[in-house]
Amino acid sequence: MRLILVMLLLIIPLVSGCVETRPGNTTASSSVTPEYPPVVDMAKSDLAKRLNISENQIHLIKQEKKDWQDTSLGFPEEGKMYAQVITPGFVIILEAGGRQYEYHSDYKRVAGPKEIPK
């Protein structure tokens, strides 16, 4: 009985990091950057509300990883103070109605938008 318990204690840490995947059921670790981060959906939702249009009318043009110099995400508001820490996130470019809009994000929130002049 003791031997079985010891073996289980040795085996469990080895297999606990394994991820089982099946077609249509993909599981990823939270330490992995998602290919299409949820903040893109947040940016689309925000832009749809601002422009009073459906999210289906908004298209993702580009997303790229970016390390922001502070927690303002590159859009500091006058009079506010921001933690001076490298903040990983994304630059998100969306298109709606022939115009492009730039959002900045970390992994939980978005800032912006700034319309990109043609």
Rank of each mutant, 00 (worst) to 15 (best):
M1F: 10
R2S: 14
R2Q: 14
I4N: 11
V6L: 14
V6P: 00
M7R: 13
L9F: 13
L9D: 09
L10S: 06
S16F: 02
C18N: 09
V19G: 05
V19M: 12
V19P: 00
E20S: 14
T21H: 08
T21Q: 15
R22V: 07
P23Y: 05
T26C: 00
T27N: 05
S30E: 10
P34C: 02
P34E: 06
Y36K: 02
P37Q: 00
V40K: 03
V40W: 04
M42S: 09
A43P: 09
A43K: 14
K44Y: 10
K44S: 10
L47T: 09
L47V: 11
A48L: 11
L51S: 12
L51R: 14
N52Y: 06
I53N: 07
I53A: 08
S54V: 11
N56Q: 14
Q57G: 03
H59C: 01
I61Q: 09
K62H: 07
K62P: 00
K62S: 13
K62W: 02
K62R: 13
E64V: 06
W68R: 07
Q69K: 15
D70M: 07
G74Y: 11
F75W: 03
P76E: 04
E77Y: 06
E77S: 10
E78D: 10
E78V: 09
G79D: 03
G79T: 05
K80C: 01
K80Y: 05
Y82P: 00
Q84I: 13
I86P: 03
T87K: 13
T87I: 10
P88W: 12
P88T: 13
I92E: 02
I93F: 03
I93V: 15
A96M: 12
A96Q: 11
A96R: 10
A96V: 11
G97K: 07
G98Q: 04
R99T: 08
R99Q: 13
Q100P: 02
Q100E: 08
Y101G: 04
Y101Q: 07
E102D: 00
H104Y: 05
H104V: 05
S105G: 03
S105P: 01
D106Q: 08
R109E: 15
R109I: 15
V110A: 08
A111I: 01
A111V: 07
A111F: 04
G112I: 03
G112M: 04
G112W: 03
P113D: 09
P113S: 10
K114R: 12
K114S: 08
K118R: 15
